[in-house]
Amino acid sequence: MLPRTYETQNCSIARALEVVGDRWTLLVIRSAFEGVRRFDDFTEHLGVARNVLTDRLNRLCDEGILRKHRYSERPERHEYRLTRKGVELWPTIMTLLKWGDRYYAADGPPVVVRHRGCDGALTERLTCDSCGAPLGPTDVEAHPGPGAR
């Protein structure tokens, strides 16, 4: 990981970027929201080098965004689960997804996030476009969109 470059700035955005401000970290968090838990599954899902993934998972655990949960003693293996602090990144991830859909999804969104309750789509205000309910990570599921490959 690149060295921290924001330490001298008294800015909450800069401090947050020290933790989540690189490509692989946000993609690891996105995958965790999609239900990926195990190291090999992260590797397969993301196509990330093992050493890079190890670094990101360790950093996210150190920061309290993910926690390790042992699921096998021999060999010792762990799952990585979002903590409350990690779950609180959901609005940020979804807002970034909607922004990316608006500006970079020429063929349409690759993923459409839908309300489990009524199948309405997630709006930019993180509400359901059908019933108007405010939505959180447990209220939605992702489906392939028109831009899916």
Rank of each mutant, 00 (worst) to 15 (best):
C128P: 08
T25Q: 04
G47Q: 04
E18F: 01
R74E: 11
V19Y: 00
P146R: 12
V48W: 00
C131D: 11
S72D: 15
K68M: 03
Y103H: 02
L2R: 02
T25N: 06
R125N: 09
M94F: 07
L135I: 10
M94T: 05
A133D: 14
V111T: 09
V20Y: 13
A106T: 01
E76K: 10
D107P: 06
A148R: 13
I13A: 12
V36M: 04
G136M: 15
R56A: 09
R23Y: 08
Y104I: 01
A142N: 11
E7S: 11
P144I: 14
R114G: 02
T95L: 08
L135G: 13
E18D: 10
D41L: 07
Y71L: 01
E76Q: 02
G64W: 11
L97E: 00
I29N: 06
P109G: 07
L57D: 05
I93W: 10
T83G: 00
L89E: 12
V87Y: 06
H69A: 15
A105K: 02
D129A: 00
L57T: 10
V140P: 00
A16S: 14
W90Q: 12
R116V: 06
V87R: 13
C11Q: 05
C118E: 14
R38H: 09
A148L: 12
T25M: 05
H45E: 01
I13H: 06
T123W: 03
R37V: 07
D119F: 13
P110A: 11
V36E: 04
A16Q: 06
R30K: 10
A16F: 05
D55W: 06
E79Y: 15
E63R: 11
R23F: 05
I93F: 00
V112R: 08
P137M: 02
G64D: 15
E7A: 08
P146L: 07
D119Y: 14
C128K: 07
R38W: 03
N51E: 08
R116E: 05
V36R: 03
A14N: 02
G86N: 10
C11M: 01
R38N: 08
D101H: 07
H115D: 12
F39W: 04
R23T: 03
G108E: 01
P91Q: 10
A14C: 14
E34Y: 02
H143T: 15
R67H: 12
D107N: 13
L27V: 02
